[in-house]
Simulated assay, not measured.
Amino acid sequence: MTDPRRAGNPLWIAYEYVAMVIGLGSLAIICIGWLPFALIFNPLLSRARGQRWGRYMIMDGFQTYLNVLSRFCACRFDLSELDQLRGEGPLILAANHPSLLDAVLVVSRLPNAVCVMKASLMDNILFGAAARLARYIRNNNPLEMILSAREELQGGAHLVIFPEGTRTVNFPIDPCSPSTALIAGRTGIPVQTLLIEYSVPYLGKAWPLWKRPALPLHCRIRLGRRFPAPASAAGLTRELDGYFREELGRKSTHSTITS
């Protein structure tokens, strides 16, 4: 939450606009910088090598981006709990989705993360080539999505998925789709929940891209409950929905989070 002593201060408002330009500009520069290499490497490298390099470079690029936000844009990120997952085997990482930054935060700490992405993002000129090199998964065909997810999990990856399917509209969380539970049931891999909390819902559904941020911005990701692979996809979907509502409802994503 913005310090009330700064609220309405013209200099602070100007800084928030500058920080917005720095944040959006630095992400665009990082993506454009990697774009030609991703385009070249995609047909040249083997699937395994391209995937490994693609995921590492996305992680490194997102780490750089978050460092820029921390140093110059009054953003504070507490992502330390994600580090506990780095040495673990395959997991389905199911997170709530309050902001456009969510996947950036998660992937920045996990070198073998693969995201389930909207097809429109896979075809986006800034993100598409990098996502395809890293072998991210399209979500537009349910059967292909499940089969691709199973292949990645069998290879030891961390599968990042947002059960809501899109950014949250009705806080604390929108209804969960059955896709997460279906993947867990087909693969036998447990579902590790991630609880993402922001001081303000920056870049959420109701926060336009060009609306200045309310700084300082605080974000934290907590490891939630781990659910075993289900016998019933419908049952796990209900459990995930109820769990997220209970946990996130205890402390609204709109409340202050201290770093």
Rank of each mutant, 00 (worst) to 15 (best):
A134C: 11
L105M: 14
L126Y: 13
A129Y: 04
M122W: 04
L133A: 08
P111C: 09
C115I: 14
N141R: 14
G128D: 09
N139L: 05
M122K: 09
M145K: 00
S120G: 09
N141E: 12
A129E: 11
E144T: 11
A131G: 11
E151P: 00
D123T: 12
V114M: 04
L110S: 05
R132S: 13
E151H: 10
Q154A: 15
M145H: 02
V116P: 09
V107N: 00
N139G: 11
M122S: 10
L143I: 12
V160R: 04
P111Y: 08
R150S: 14
F162T: 12
L121E: 11
F127Q: 05
A157F: 02
Y136S: 10
A134T: 08
I161E: 03
R138A: 13
V104R: 00
V106H: 02
V114S: 11
A134V: 06
A134H: 10
V116C: 05
V104A: 10
L143D: 13
A129L: 06
A129Q: 04
V106L: 06
A113R: 01
P142Q: 02
L153S: 06
Q154R: 13
L126G: 07
E152I: 00
S120P: 08
N124D: 15
I146D: 02
I125Q: 09
R138E: 03
D123Q: 15
L105H: 08
I137N: 06
K118P: 12
C115D: 04
